[in-house]
Design a protein around this nucleic acid. Sequence first.
DNA 1: TTTTTATGGATATTTTTTATCCGTAATTAC
DNA 2: GTAATTACGGATAAAAAATATCCATAAAAA
Lengths: 165, 165
Amino acid sequence: MKLGKGVEWAAHTCALLALLPPKATLPGDSLADFLGIPSPYLAKQLQAMSRAGIVAAKRGASGGYRLQKPAESISLWDITASIEGTAHSFRCTEVRRSGPCGAVKSECKRPCPIAATFYDAERRYRETLDAMKLTDIVSAVAIEANQNRKDRIKEWVQTNAALPA
Amino acid sequence: MKLGKGVEWAAHTCALLALLPPKATLPGDSLADFLGIPSPYLAKQLQAMSRAGIVAAKRGASGGYRLQKPAESISLWDITASIEGTAHSFRCTEVRRSGPCGAVKSECKRPCPIAATFYDAERRYRETLDAMKLTDIVSAVAIEANQNRKDRIKEWVQTNAALPA
DNA sequence: TTTTTATGGATATTTTTTATCCGTAATTAC
DNA sequence: GTAATTACGGATAAAAAATATCCATAAAAA
């Protein structure tokens, strides 16, 4: 059971976008530069989040990305789901139906108890991520950071962000 | 986030082994046949469960596999962990440390709040699977099955299981 | 002694992940 | 209006992981 590293990138990207003044945007290349990750690949995650309605993309000069919703209504699950999808982690191939003693359809009205337990576990996993909002992440990160770093981030944002005309 | 299909196979295999009389064993080939899955690959999962102390393997004629512990002390998490390992699903590459505004070591004493949330979610996932014991699975499966299927399974077990001399 | 069966290693195949590139469209700056 | 900037979508390629198989060996029973 493994998540792609795009999830980590996407989450940190959103945490950065949450610091932008309203309506301001940051280009994909700048975001990748800030995080020290390959830009063309991050672009994929950004597109996915754009399609999911998490970020708004603006083309053209002084374009880029910004959050499309208030940070308190974006959860870590929203971000994860936009990158990884919402498919079940447990793939039930209905083994119980095959083999010499396979069950017939009438015995399989309810989901297999093994699959049902995994789905329940996944639901709890999802709920935990969904309870963590982008605002919570930003607060937690701010607590850890020292003043010097906060200043440098602020300066970097002012240098790289574009405000609409 | 995806689990290999070996997990499903391993779980159903254990559910079958739980029906054996004490000390009786079932060969790997028979287990694969019962589930209708490729035998050489199931052998890998059986070896993994053997190393994890979930099943006991007995070589030689009339050998095979049986549960090594009482079914009530084997959980769905035990089985999953033996096949998939216990590594975190979220891979934190400490992105916060890199880039032009990367955090210094003293700011990273606590785990990144993003990673911490994932670890918390994983813990709940794990706890849910750990609460489901093999005995619970066997009971749940028995409730769904009709009498005819139960009889056929019983017959199949008697035909294929080997009792020690 | 022969047959049965698990073990561990090696290998092959397929799928997924990771990563990059490019032509196009949209938008702003000049 | 023109040129520069930037996102978008598709195509592609390289790397890694999952899936699947085979074989030589060891162990144990018949």
